[in-house]
Design a protein around this nucleic acid. Sequence first.
DNA 1: ACCTGAACACCGTTCAAGT
DNA 2: ACCTGAACACCGTTCAAGT
Lengths: 248, 248
Amino acid sequence: MSPKKAATGPSVPGAVWLRQRPPRRGQHGLTRERIAAEVVSQLDHGGPAGLNLRSIAAALDVHPTTLYWHVSARDDLLDFAVDAVFAELPLPTRPADDWIEDVRAFMHNLRAALLAHPWSGALASSRPLLGPEALARSEFVYAALARAGFTGDELTASAAAVSNLVIGSVAAETSWQHGDESPARRAVHEHLRANAETYPAMAELSTESGHWGAQFSYSADLLLAGLAQKAPINVTSHGATTQAPQIM
Amino acid sequence: MSPKKAATGPSVPGAVWLRQRPPRRGQHGLTRERIAAEVVSQLDHGGPAGLNLRSIAAALDVHPTTLYWHVSARDDLLDFAVDAVFAELPLPTRPADDWIEDVRAFMHNLRAALLAHPWSGALASSRPLLGPEALARSEFVYAALARAGFTGDELTASAAAVSNLVIGSVAAETSWQHGDESPARRAVHEHLRANAETYPAMAELSTESGHWGAQFSYSADLLLAGLAQKAPINVTSHGATTQAPQIM
DNA sequence: ACCTGAACACCGTTCAAGT
DNA sequence: ACCTGAACACCGTTCAAGT
């Protein structure tokens, strides 16, 4: 049985991070970090469907059941893996002059990190992101948006919108990538054309859609435009700041 | 073996919809609709983790392996279930005067439908949404955004932003709902406070966060503000329209 | 065309026991 | 405190056979 399991109540997702960390360096020197790295590597190879405790344990040279000393369930391993992906996100040591550039960079960096591990988008969207690496990135976004003058619930909602749009977009994008993407896209396109009466607007385009990257960029710009407009503090192009009252 | 499996190539996710539909009414009258309804009902009870082919088959009064005539894998069942949830989304028979009200209503309606089946947000974010019901809703959003003057890749990106923000937000929201939510929130809050030096901006708030609904509403408004600003055709409050050139 | 029935390989998790 | 070892219950999927 894993230590301090009852500390946060019954099986809250993401709860590994809230439990006490088991002491390091046992006989095999099995640590969260080594486990996490192995899980990431196996997910990179076979995706979530291919992940199983037995092969992880084998790679770490322990018995399958040994893992249960470090985690309370398979799901905790996925929490480790997702946080490890967040660790790859570059974190600027000091903020940019314009808060919006920090937010924009965060969005693009987060997308890049998640895309580097195609399984991570879907996982990140389906669990609370409470690992230390994820929290540090959230803190960065909160700080940037706080400089824009957002406070309280508006600050929370703005930060959530930023993360959710990115994670949602990457999850959608990677959901196409299980096999070859082009035959799937072509099949969908044909399907829409064949039913052009039911889907007139969609049948019209999608002929040769642009790249995922450009479309994400435009999606992000839409949200950034909204943030800039609703920000209580606006930075003019000359660096002067103006205050505007704002109601939620 | 399921019919026409090779039609769209090797195991593309969401590919059930692109395969030919097996003829209806066999000996047991097993149809996609009956299967889908049963899957939704079982997911509502036990979530994705509790879903298994044997109990679905039992409820439909067939042998477990019979399902493989109608689907090629367990995953296809989830595609059925997600599309069934989209079917609950009200689809206006005629568009509103203002396109933005159509988009706003869509966002709130989609959230409501997904929240009614807490498992559906995570599933919707992790697979292409190619079912007939989902496509019909996408068409509605495309049509609304086309009235705003969006075309081509900008239209695609705008529509994607709308869906991805909603689905991403609901997935995040429901990821907290596995057990009781309040103890988890409290634990996170304590954790942030305890590490206030590392998370100054986040430690400051989160004391008593507002409701999910209000925060989603604000998130949606941020994106809607961006859409309104970037829309090639702007509707003034008096109903007059103006055109503005726009570059992606 | 649709469904049955038996069988296979696998996998998360438990629990008591070791050191 | 950390790891072993055996064992359990379950589950997706296959394939050949029925009607």
